[in-house]
């Protein structure tokens, strides 16, 4: 039935049973021996502080260079947990399937999702499946929620940046947004840029174990680094000044941004975070990040200063200073 499309009849009754038993549950490695499907999962043995988050994924197209909607849906929620210093424990997976999506495609997206969860050690414990009429969805929407355990109480918050602190980015920026634009094939350019889509739980813990005094950790998704750094500056009432020359950008991303008139700082990432650490810990933080494959190109990109009129500034390649705005409008819709 791989080349067959999901139909409306798969949204309830026997059709739904078929869809769940032949596609959804096997792809997620949920077996009969795990017991019957109940109305809610019971999570036992969780004590102390828990992190809880949710995210919906509407990326278009469903596949792109470096990932697909399944990988994105797992990584997005894992990363949100990791940014609060939590180790992912359990995820829910809700699917809204548009009539016409091929079973084979659904399987492959769910496989990607499961693999990321397995690697992160998070169990998929509950979920939901709906089918909507053709034309009423866009292939597939996925919502995931996640619970994580916070074993060490790191004191992380967007409001904790202090003047003198250093700003670090975990790798080259803007790859996910450009990979999506290239995958849409509407823009008259092809590109070899690979999305940075990745689970950051291990990289985040590597940093936090080495530098427990880390003040802020945020993944730079929609709106890119410009959005998160503006948020941090406002929440902490500081001004962050970036150094243009220090910001890692792959040549393919730089070229695409030039062509499209985009600022890489405003382009989405799905596997990059920014961290704010005390100045004295910056070297230790970079050392720890660079030892991990996902952090090998991490870089110190800016400094936190006393609040001026604007929250985020950049020192340009000719030594001028300018504002870096929070992106506005529909720069790149449907990116995640």
């Amino acid at each position: 039935m791989n080349d067959e499309p999901v139909r409306l009849l798969h949204g309830s009754g026997q059709g739904l049973q078929l869809l769940l038993n032949q596609v959804v549950l096997p792809s997620l490695h949920i077996h009969e021996k795990d017991g019957p499907l109940e109305d809610a999962a019971l999570l036992t043995g969780l004590t102390g502080t828990l992190a809880f988050t949710t995210d919906s994924f509407v990326v278009n197209p469903l596949r792109f260079n470096g990932g697909d909607i399944g990988k994105l849906a797992a990584c997005g929620t894992i990363n949100d947990l990791a940014m609060m210093g939590a180790k992912p424990h359990a995820l829910s997976v809700s699917l809204i399937i548009e009539e016409g999506l091929l079973f084979s495609d659904l399987k492959s997206f769910l496989n990607s999702l499961r693999q990321e969860c397995e690697t992160a050690g998070a169990a998929i414990v509950c979920g939901d499946t709906k089918v909507v009429d053709a034309g009423k969805g866009d292939g597939l929407y996925i919502n995931t929620s996640g619970i994580g355990r916070v074993s060490t109480p790191y004191n992380l918050s967007a409001a904790h940046a202090r003047p003198g602190d250093c700003v670090i980015v975990s790798g080259p920026i803007g790859q996910h947004g450009i990979a999506i634009l290239a995958a849409r094939q509407q823009l008259g350019f092809s590109s070899t840029v690979v999305s940075d889509c990745a689970a950051l739980d291990k990289l985040a813990l590597t940093l936090l174990e080495a530098v427990p005094e880390t003040r802020v950790l945020r993944d730079a998704t929609r709106g890119g680094c410009a959005a998160v750094l503006n948020e941090i500056a406002d929440a902490s009432n500081v001004t962050i000044t970036l150094d243009q020359a220090a910001i890692p950008v792959q040549p393919g991303v730089a070229a695409a941004c030039d062509y499209l008139g985009l600022d890489p700082l405003q382009v989405a990432n799905e596997g990059r975070f920014v961290a704010v650490v005390p100045e004295a810990s910056a070297g230790k933080a970079l050392g720890a990040l660079k030892r991990h494959p996902l952090g090998k190109d991490s870089a110190l990109i800016g400094q936190v200063e006393l609040r001026e009129r604007f929250g985020l500034l950049i020192q340009t390649e000719i030594g001028g200073k300018r504002i870096v705005e929070m992106p506005s409008g529909l720069l790149l819709p449907r990116i995640c």
Binding site: D263, E317, I318, K321
Partner: peptide, 11 residues
Amino acid sequence: MEIGRLGLRQR
């Protein structure tokens, strides 16, 4: 836009 982006006027 590029003059603005560079912060050229201050320089």
